[in-house]
Design a protein around this nucleic acid. Structure first.
Lengths: 106, 106
DNA sequence: AAGTTAATGAACCATATGGTTGACTATCCG
DNA sequence: CGGATAGTCAACCATATGGTTCATTAACTT
């Protein structure tokens, strides 16, 4: 799996995006992250692992708690990949228009 | 699965991103899409289905060929979601800096 | 009519994902 | 020491994913 693969895959789950949302307001212990969710701590721990593997957060062990901190760097790569397609969604130049333009080009 | 879920999931595979890349240069029949890949047409057809389900492309049947066309609209939503985090990766205000700022805030 | 090409469908396989529970480890608190 | 809290690990389960092959349908070509 490439970097982009794991980044997009990690972002493809609502729970994980919510975790990142929480982390945007600052470092948070895993148990606090888990509270809003109707699932076991184990399940949240697994989601955190996926995010960690994708490099979207870092975990620091401090005493018995794990402190999670957002690392948005991989998101930049994802955003960069997406912006290559910006012209296709920016209205002014949608995919149909481009299609027609390409045909008229010949 | 929400819209964002399926968009990010669809983008999490190299082959599917490559398919979208190809479509950026214009409408393409499925069989042409499949050529560069070292896998069966069936496999590519499945990837196209995933992209189609996510709304990232549309398929138009024309005679015996299926013509695929890029639809970047869902990418805009994904990009919009990501830009909420832009401040975290824009160097000027990275996650560590924000973390320290939050601590100093008190 | 016969053959080729485009594509899907069905069955199968291996592995990944998302969740659970129960046992265990480690740390903190009294 | 004894108990509560934070978290992982292992086993298990259901379903999804990514690929294959073989058969089949549908549409062009000659």
């Amino acid at each position: 799996m490439t970097n982009l693969d794991s980044t997009f895959a990690a972002l493809s789950h609502e729970t994980r995006r919510a975790i990142l949302g929480k982390l945007a307001s600052g470092e948070t212990p895993l148990s606090d992250l888990a509270k809003p969710f109707n699932m076991s701590l184990t399940a949240v721990s697994k989601h955190v692992r996926v995010l960690s593997d994708a490099g979207l957060l870092t975990v620091e062990r401090r005493g018995r708690t794990r402190h999670c901190r957002l690392n948005a760097q991989p998101m930049k790569q994802a955003a960069d990949w997406l912006t290559d397609y910006q012209s296709f969604w920016s209205g002014q130049f949608d995919s149909l228009a481009r299609h027609l333009a390409a045909k008229g080009d010949r």
